[in-house]
Every structure is written in C-alpha cells, then in structure tokens.
Design a protein around this nucleic acid. Structure first.
Lengths: 275, 275
DNA sequence: TTGCTCCTCACGTCACGTGAGGTGGC
DNA sequence: TTGCTCCTCACGTCACGTGAGGTGGC
C-alpha cells in the first residue's frame, strides 16, 4: 500500500494529478483515512491508472474516460468513441497542415516584399445579400465612376441604404468596355426600384451566398483596388484555393477627397479549396 | 464609424471578441465615449483587425500578436517567430499522427480480443537505478523461484530494500537454462553486498537509465507475466517501436498465496521509436 | 413608450501547476 | 526535536461564450 508520493513516483505522474483525479471521482485511492485525509493506493490500482493514462494519451477527455470506466460501455460504444476521436484528430491534422502552408506562404511574402506589408486575407462565409443595382457595359472606368456618383445622388441619404457595391461580370479584368454592376447593399429586403435622372432603373436582386469567400481590405484609390484583385488571386493559388466566381467589392468608406487615399474597400473573391 | 455590433458583423467576429481585445489592449476602438463607454470603430480598423485574425489563424497567441503589432519587430524577428511556430505545429503533427496510430492499434485490439481487455502500455523514461542482485543460469524456473525466496529471506525486513527485481539476460525467452538476474531495487546508493546461506553473494550494480521504456502492469502468476512479455513485444511493433535491450520485471506486490493470483508485476521493455 | 443595442461585471471552460499555510509520523 | 510528507484551499492558465442586471438612443 502506497502514499500519494510513492504512488506518484511509481506511475510517473504528479501528486497533484492523483489528488485531482480523486477530487473529480475519476480515480479514487483504495483507502482514505477519514481522520487525517491521507490517501492510500494499492498496487492493483497502478493498472487502472495506467489504463486512464493510455486513454488520455489517445486524446479522450477525463469525462469520457470516466464514463468508459464507470458506466459499463459496450465494445461497440467503445469502438464508436475511438472512431469519433480518430475522425476528430484527422480533421485537426488537416487544419494543421493548412496552417503550415499558410505560414510558409506568409514567410515567402515577408521575404519577397520587404517593403510593403504582406496581404491579410480572411476566408469567411458570406450570406445571401439583397442589392439595388444596375448592370451595363462602360466604355471607360471614368464612366463607371460617374455612374457611381449618379447612383449615390439618386438615393435619398440615410434611408436604409447600405454600402456601395461593385461587381465585375467579365471573365477577365479589362481596361475598356467593362461589364460592371454598380449599386449598393440593401439591409432590408423590401425595396422598390429607383429611377435615375437619365431614365435608367436600379433594380433589386439577390446576390447568392458564398461559403468560402476570400476577402481582403484595401485602402486607397482605384489602382490600389485593381492591384488588390491580382494580389488576392495570387494569394489563393499560394494557399491552396481556386477562384470560382465573380469577385465583388464593397465600399466601406467613401473617399473624402479627390485623390481617394482614404477610400476603403473590401474585395471579395469566391474560392474553393483545391482539396 | 461603426458601433461594436456593426463592426462585429462586418468582420464576422463576436462583440465579445472586440470588447475582449479592447480589454487586453490588443485592438482598441478608434474612439470611445468617456461618458457612456460606447466603442466606435473606423473602417480603417478593419484592415488591422483582419491582420490580427490572420496571425491568430497561423496559431500565434494574442500576446505574440500584440508584440508583433505594437513593439516594432524587425523582419528577421517576424521570420523567427513564424519559423518557430511552424516547427511547433510540425511537432504537433507528428504527435497527432502517433495518436492516430495508437487509436488504430487499440481499435484492432478491441476487435481481436472481445474477451480479454486490451493491453495498457505506458512509455516513460526510467532513471538509472541501483540494484542488489545475483546473476546465474537456472536449469528450471522453479530453481529461480527458490532463489527469489532465498534472497527475500536473506534481506533484513524493511531495512530500505525496495521492490523485487528480475532481468532476463538471454536474447530469446527460453524455457530451460535461463540466464537470469534476480534481486531487489535499492532506494539508496550505499549498500554492502549481502551473503546468502549457500555462500553466494548478492552484489550491488547500477541499471542504466532508459529514455523510452515501454511498461505494462500485469496481475497473476508466472504464466501471465510470461504472456505479458509477448504482448508487450506485439504492442511495440503495432505502435511503431522496436525492442532495444533486455526487459526487466519489478514485483510491486508479492503473492500472498500459492496460486499467486494477486502477484502484481510491472514489465519494462526498453524500446526505440522506428522513426 | 417600446424594443434594440450598448455597457460592465462575473462565472465557466479543461486539466492540472504552483504556492500558501498548516498538521502528522520518524 | 527537526525535516519530510501529507493535507486543504485558492489563484492562474487561454480566449473568449454566456448570461445577469442595468442604461441610452430611435
């Protein structure tokens, strides 16, 4: 019969662990002195403790181990728990592999671009979104900018209209004759079409939800936004993603001055993991 | 300018996260109303938060991220942290792969042996250990048992002698003419040789430390112990280890009766990972 | 005036590590 | 009698989630 210290030495665990397992009822000493509180363990118990330690090594929680040992679980249930745990660990393995790839990509980015900062890309699900917009082909980008301003003025200020929105419907990024959709997000569902001065109509439609949207935030004028699209594409291929749809951009903050250095835009690119 | 709720929605994080990051000084709102305590975030800040979220994804702690952002760290230091983190994750990957192998081995054991329990094997480092022992060739196992009893009686009871100890010096497990070392562990270093009745001497020597010792606890008479050696060997090969030295056994509890059903023995087998 | 958002505590998480402060056996 | 071990609190960990209870703006 052994004291905590002796038993801890035998089992290569800490005394605290033995007291803790006693406290939570997972592993009780064979005998405890009611007067002094001293715990006494038997040699037989070492086998039991070892079983607990092995199950812990497998990644099971102490609560799971408790139910395995004290509630009589069947062989099938045991197998179920082990298979479940195995699946969990395999998911973790995939996550960590992804993490390693991301770190490598970032290391590369740090080395490449000592001057400018590496790109921060967030993958997130984006819900379906109502927009009020107009789609047409613009000869030049200035035409598109003029339209953007016209739309802004056509909307009554602060009447429940959301961020500015732009979506490119060309397969490639062009410099002229671009097929663009311009408008704004709608926080609420019910909205009537809005007419512009030139007779064109903004119409309401719903952007589909995207499960894995690669997003990044850029600050600056159009050239910066333009560069952002390219950066995002390169980031995707470096990090194991493939573009899979039309990118969007959302104006989080409108430019206050002509040079648009304080224009803030979130670029969103639907992607899929390469698997 | 956005409230917590709005900014949280934009960034796809919880309000609690934003308040927490404020509390620990990692990410403060651009402006806070001193009277009401209301937090106000700017569009510019979304880029900063995204950087934090990306670094978190990489596996860095909030404290590390804090120092990355607020203490001006050099490119080299940044690379150092990333490389360190990468090495950490790769170690974790190895650990989890091992865990998966262990789970698979245990699943197999559960399927194979529906009747008896799977073996619980603990890998632990064992320190160098002084022993008082005698090594000789025994014709039969009964001879060895007699010697074990003789040694027990030659030792003054409770005078600082430890557990009974047995080590097999044959390369294979034999049934006859076994080269065995029998004795006991010595908790303290200083001990004189002990003479037996037949004139033989128990001598003091030091067992070397073993870094990775596969150990298991068995309860029962000799046949059970014998089987344990075999089980331990099979376990090792199933779990990616290779035996690499002489096994030892330690008597944690002596048998009280002739059938020895309550004899408790720890079998120790030095192993090395197959890598 | 009624919801909605905002705020600040404060507890819970998981498996112990690490003292603090005090008592019993050789 | 002096160390050594034992005991029971109780705080800290890491990054928030989850209410509780109360206040300010449309």
């Amino acid at each position: 019969v052994f004291t905590v210290g002796e038993f801890a030495t035998l089992a290569h665990v800490s005394r605290r662990l033995l007291r803790y397992y006693d406290e939570i009822g997972l592993f009780r000493p064979a005998h405890a002195d009611a007067a002094t509180g001293y715990r006494y363990y038997s040699a037989e118990q070492l086998a039991v403790l070892n079983r607990i330690l092995v199950l812990k090594e497998l990644g099971l929680s102490l609560e799971q181990i408790h139910s395995l040992l004290h509630d009589g679980v069947s062989t099938d249930e045991m197998q179920g728990m082990l298979l479940l745990k195995k699946a969990e660990i395999e998911q973790q393995l995939r996550d960590e592999l992804k993490r390693v790839r991301m770190i490598e990509a970032r290391l590369q980015a740090v080395r490449d671009a000592e001057t400018d900062k590496p790109l921060d890309v967030i993958i997130k699900p984006v819900a379906a979104q109502a927009v009020l917009s107009l789609q047409m082909v613009f000869e030049t980008f200035d035409d598109a900018l003029r339209m953007q301003r016209a739309i802004r003025h056509a909307l009554p200020e602060k009447q429940g209209y959301g961020f500015g929105f732009l979506m490119c419907h060309d397969d490639d990024i062009l410099d002229r004759d671009m097929n663009l959709e311009i408008g704004c997000l709608l926080p609420e569902q019910q909205h009537v079409p809005v007419a512009l001065h030139d007779g064109r109509q903004l119409s309401v439609r719903s952007l589909p939800a995207v499960e894995t949207m690669a997003t990044t935030v850029v600050q600056g004028p159009l050239e910066v936004i333009h560069a952002g699209y390219g950066d995002l594409g390169r980031w995707a291929s470096l990090n194991g993603y493939r573009p899979t749809g039309q990118p969007r951009e959302i104006t989080l903050k409108m430019a206050s001055s002509f040079d648009a250095h304080d224009l803030i835009t979130e670029i969103q690119y639907p992607v899929l993991p390469l698997h």
